[in-house]
Design a protein around this nucleic acid. Structure first.
Length: 477
DNA sequence: ATGTCC
């Protein structure tokens, strides 16, 4: 492990104040010894840099999928006081409300095994790739509604059922959306992309439940062994990216205007109470809502395809849950024995609220929030549940996925997409993408093992394993 | 992640 970092608990490490100049609080991260081998010192420096920001509460945190990112590390969590704290686009990421949802079906593995026609049909129905255009007709007024009402716009417009909304984090929308803070350029990019998947690590995957770790929680989440599910991983597309780009520029000036000293330009930020901070928050919330509506639109398309192909009912494909893993939110947490509202940044980290949290629907209150963790291509995904320990240690947060260990350029140089596709097919996994290139840089070997990452958070107690899902067919950008 | 450089 890195010098001066010391172990403080099971899979729990502390970066002391003084690791970089100006730290206001220590850093804390969750990692096993074996994952420590691929830990980048630059990511720990970023974790420490975040601890210098005004108003940060308790710790700058990182999850076991930590890696080097823009300003903040990916896998980072940081909570700020509403009076003295700042908001930073680097703490949210470029893909605002990148997230993942899990849909169940009444199908069993034998129903879809080897069904290349299903994967082809999904690939045809759900637009993918960089600049992928929607087949739905989203008008500019629809876009405004998407940004204000999120998933509930989609449900009201007929793209889903009411129950979907109570199975989304924040019911699928943030009330602080402010469309006026979203540039016309961002809106222009958003209109044609409603209901599209995107590229990179985004995917739509047919999976089968292959292991149940926690029968009581699995039952409450509507999951059973051998069941076919569909996982959807995507975000706010060009709209969120443009919002991030626009506001980074504005916040770079605001950082100077408010005399905030930052150790890295990429930590551009503004007081949460400032006009610049509020504008970014409003634009970010609008993008988050767009992403929730986007995942809802894709869900609708998937349900239509499955209903038609397998003669099953649209209503028989309920949502387990939908989580955001790139977002900043105002949440109530206990700080020094007092309940208070704080601004929690999660960048490549998932909310994991424990049992008895107000936000949870009644039937999940005893169990805790479902946490959906996507695996990399060809590897397992997981469902976990939030815990009281997460509420105490991580502002109710856990990991978000496997975490990249090889750069995209390196992967394209050393791996062949064709070979990877053939190997996956041998393992019974059908992959469909626009190009071989899109497959090479998403190969299983460019990511940390998702098994190891979820084991770290399980053992540390900041979420608990519920079920394992194995891939059968995947569509990629 | 991203109309992978306005």
């Amino acid at each position: 492990m890195i010098d001066s970092v010391r172990q403080t608990g099971v899979n729990e490490w502390e970066v002391p104040v003084g690791y970089v100049p100006g730290m206001r609080v220590p850093g804390k991260f969750f990692l096993s010894e074996s994952l420590g081998i691929s830990l980048e010192s630059g990511a720990i420096e970023q974790l420490a840099n975040v601890a210098t920001l005004p108003g940060i509460i308790r710790h700058s945190l990182a999850m076991p999928d930590i890696h080097w990112g823009y300003g903040f590390p990916i896998g980072g969590v940081a909570a700020f006081s509403l009076d003295e704290g700042v908001i930073s686009p680097g703490g949210v990421g470029f893909d605002i409300n990148c997230g993942v949802r899990l849909l169940t079906t009444p199908l069993a593995q034998k129903d879809i095994s080897g069904r290349r026609d299903l994967i082809e049909e999904l690939f045809r129905a759900v637009p993918t790739g960089v600049g992928g255009k929607s087949t739905l007709r989203i008008s500019p007024p629809d876009l405004e509604r998407m940004m204000i009402k999120g998933a509930s716009w989609a449900v009201d417009a007929g793209y889903g059922v009411k129950r979907d909304l109570i199975r989304c984090e924040d019911s699928g929308y943030m009330k602080q959306a402010d469309c006026h803070a979203v540039s016309s350029k961002a809106k222009q990019r958003g209109v044609p992309q409603g209901g599209t998947l995107g590229s990179g690590n985004h995917f739509l995957e047919m999976q089968v439940v292959t292991e149940i770790f926690d029968p009581e929680a699995a039952q409450a989440f509507g999951l059973h062994l051998g069941q076919i599910c569909c996982m959807i991983h995507c975000g706010s597309r060009g709209l969120g990216h443009q919002v991030c780009t626009d506001h980074l520029k504005l916040l770079e000036s605001a950082t100077k205007k408010y005399h905030i000293v930052i150790p890295d330009r990429q930590l551009a930020c503004a007081p949460i109470t400032s006009v610049e901070g509020k504008d970014y928050f409003g634009a970010m919330a609008s993008s988050a809502n767009y992403a929730w509506a986007n995942r809802q639109l894709i869900t609708h398309t998937v349900r239509q395809v499955l209903a038609k192909m397998f003669r099953i009912e649209y209503e028989d494909m309920p949502l387990v849950y939908d989580v955001a893993h790139n977002v900043a939110k105002i949440e109530e947490h206990e700080v020094d024995g007092k309940r208070m509202n704080v601004c929690v940044h999660r960048k490549g980290a998932t909310r994991a609220f424990g049992p008895d949290t107000d936000e949870l629907p009644l039937d999940l209150k005893k169990i805790g929030q479902p946490v959906i963790i996507p695996g990399s291509m060809g590897t397992s995904s997981f469902v976990l549940r939030g815990t009281k320990t997460a509420m105490e240690k991580t502002f109710g947060s856990t990991c978000h996925g496997a975490g990249r260990i090889m750069s995209r350029t390196q992967a394209k140089k050393s791996l062949s997409g064709k070979e990877i596709t053939a190997n996956l097919l041998k393992a019974g996994i059908i992959v469909r993408a626009h190009s071989e290139n899109a497959i090479a840089d998403e190969a299983p070997e460019v990511y940390k093992s998702s098994d190891e990452v979820v084991n770290v958070v399980h053992e540390a107690g900041i979420s608990r394993l519920v079920a394992r899902l194995s891939p059968l067919g995947v569509i990629k950008g």
